[in-house]
Design a protein around this nucleic acid. Structure first.
Lengths: 336, 336
DNA sequence: CTGAAAGCGCTTACAG
DNA sequence: CTGAAAGCGCTTACAG
């Protein structure tokens, strides 16, 4: 493996000069820099990140920590983050966290993460207070994408607003019997996304003079399968919504699938609105409150890089990106 | 950051002993090992991968290199690989390669990759001969998932067989006018997947005494959008297939979407079969030749780890995993 | 079974 | 503007 000494020999300078020249540090004569750069290029030399990390403490890598969830959402966050990380010479390390406590401890309790990466993106992950503490103790810039983590800077959408916009759309189409599918009864960590979207739903109903019917709220995690179950639950309860607001597009897809399986036509018999604008939502003609998840990943990464440049601080600013209603064919005016 | 000297101090031994004890090396007294492990646990100590990489040359990380393609496929490969890498204490580094040559050179020409990781998974990436050479020059175990790369070990499905199985299914349902959607006219790197699946298609047709009609083959990359365009192209050519074999499920989804938009019913008017068993295929009732992509990722990762343990060799074995027809509701017998 | 010391490939004060 | 040298945190012959 070509190392810095070979480059130095070839360029006829010391390794110190090579180091400075290649990193664009000031105080290197222009022609010296040029010949070093040439020598490095000819040899295909790049400084070993491991070796450079030792004296500097910088690894040149950023971690994206997400749940094991194999969803479109986390993929999109990573893609966005990767775009800007690559462009800035950082590598992207992926950590998937299960719900198993021991697995999580491995990441949070040990200092592995801290020793591996310069900064951390938390992608829509439910964290315990201890985990938040551990994250801070790492003394590395952290950025959350998704729900607000107290004391942590964050990129997000306004989930209450999202719920309101989705529900208002249905109300304006004349619907009054509007169900909500979302919220995970198993969630021990208080993941706020579903409750907030439901708050918006409740607000919008109240604003329209509609009293929310508890029987119209059915639980659903963020998966297609959960949507299927949610619709089944709705039927088994014997309630008859004319519209459903699903906590995510994947849930909405499951609802549409199951409804059709029961001969319920969409949108003639049932209007459905989701959240996200999943890559495949247009295929289903799904009306949705769209968010640009890749952009959120990009913002998270560039914020971290900026922070890395300017020195670590404990910023906690929250960036709220817009979410906009995209009307397609899964919702329609309620025929009286 | 707690380092090895603190652990040594706490355990009352030398750093050499700590190093040996923690890595499970032989020649450490049982009680010594125990007290070292306790000290390390109390301090939350983990050896710095960067520092350890310097003397050993091992980084404890594995790269997954894939195209920028934001597809389900690459995500699934990564998920599978991550499962086994995490379980074995390796971290997963993600590299997305664009089609832009300069971006690719950054990965292949420089020795960054080699200095960053111990092994490399190539996920269904079209490589030039130079890139294959560069990969070998890195002297790191490499494993391809997807198409065979000459001289490189690989996990794959038999794409000719896949094409044959899909087409035979349609033939057995009485179809004779069977279109094929796949193959990328822009592909300069000779990506073999589509051509091989088409070979299977041609073979199956011949076996049934059907002469393939060139007008029945339309190009399509591996995306939903390409499927939409492929169906549009089929219409504009004025051919009237009663069935289509799509090179992937995403292409099939696009075809179904566009066909229905034109009032063509599936499967009454058109049978469609894809390849992959994409996570969402069941939602579309899509008949498909299923492959277990996550398992392929797992196999790739465990093969690499095995190779890492046993020392680097230039193995080139090809592991072919099964692909099986899953019949759902997008295909049906042709009514005479 | 254990420890002292050299060395991995860089970066960075410190001198000049 | 440039170089010699110390040091980053580990691992690994080499002694004992």
């Amino acid at each position: 493996m070509t190392g810095i000494v070979e480059v130095a020999a070839r360029a006829g300078v010391s390794v110190a000069t090579v180091s400075r020249a290649l990193r664009g540090l000031p105080g290197v004569a222009a022609k010296t820099r040029k010949s070093v750069e040439e020598a490095a290029a000819e040899l295909g030399y790049v400084a070993s990140p491991s070796a450079a990390a030792l004296p500097t403490g910088r690894t040149g890598a950023v971690a994206v920590v997400s749940p094991v969830a194999r969803g479109w959402y986390f993929t999109a966050v990573c893609e966005g983050a990767q775009d800007v990380l690559t462009a800035n010479g950082y590598d992207l390390l992926r950590y998937e966290l299960s719900d198993v406590e021991t697995d999580r401890r491995r990441v949070f309790d040990t200092q592995l993460l801290r020793k591996r990466v310069d900064a951390i993106v938390i992608a829509s992950l439910r964290l315990t207070n201890d985990e938040v503490e551990a994250l801070y103790a790492m003394n590395r810039p952290v950025m959350a994408v998704g729900p607000i983590v107290p004391g942590m800077p964050c990129v997000r959408i306004d989930d209450v607003e999202v719920g309101r916009v989705a529900t208002e759309h249905l109300v304006q189409l004349g619907h009054r019997d509007i169900a909500f599918a979302g919220g995970d009864p198993d969630d021990t960590l208080g993941f706020p996304v579903s409750p907030e979207r439901r708050s918006g739903y409740v607000e919008a109903l109240h604003a329209a003079g509609i009293e929310p019917d508890p029987a119209m709220t059915v639980p659903a995690k963020f998966t297609v399968e959960a949507g299927v179950e949610a619709y089944a639950e709705l039927r088994s309860r014997g309630v008859n919504p004319t519209a459903v607001f699903a906590v995510s597009d994947e849930v909405a897809m499951g609802i549409m699938y199951e409804a059709r399986r029961h001969g319920v036509r969409i949108p003639e018999d049932l209007s459905v609105v989701g959240v996200d604008d999943h890559d495949m939502s247009w295929l289903f003609g799904l009306t949705t409150v769209a968010q640009d998840v890749r952009e959120e990943g990009r913002i998270a990464a560039s914020t971290l890089i900026e922070r890395l440049r300017s020195g670590i601080d404990r910023e906690t600013s929250v960036t709220t990106v817009p979410a906009t209603l995209v009307v397609r064919s899964s919702t329609r005016r309620l025929e009286p």
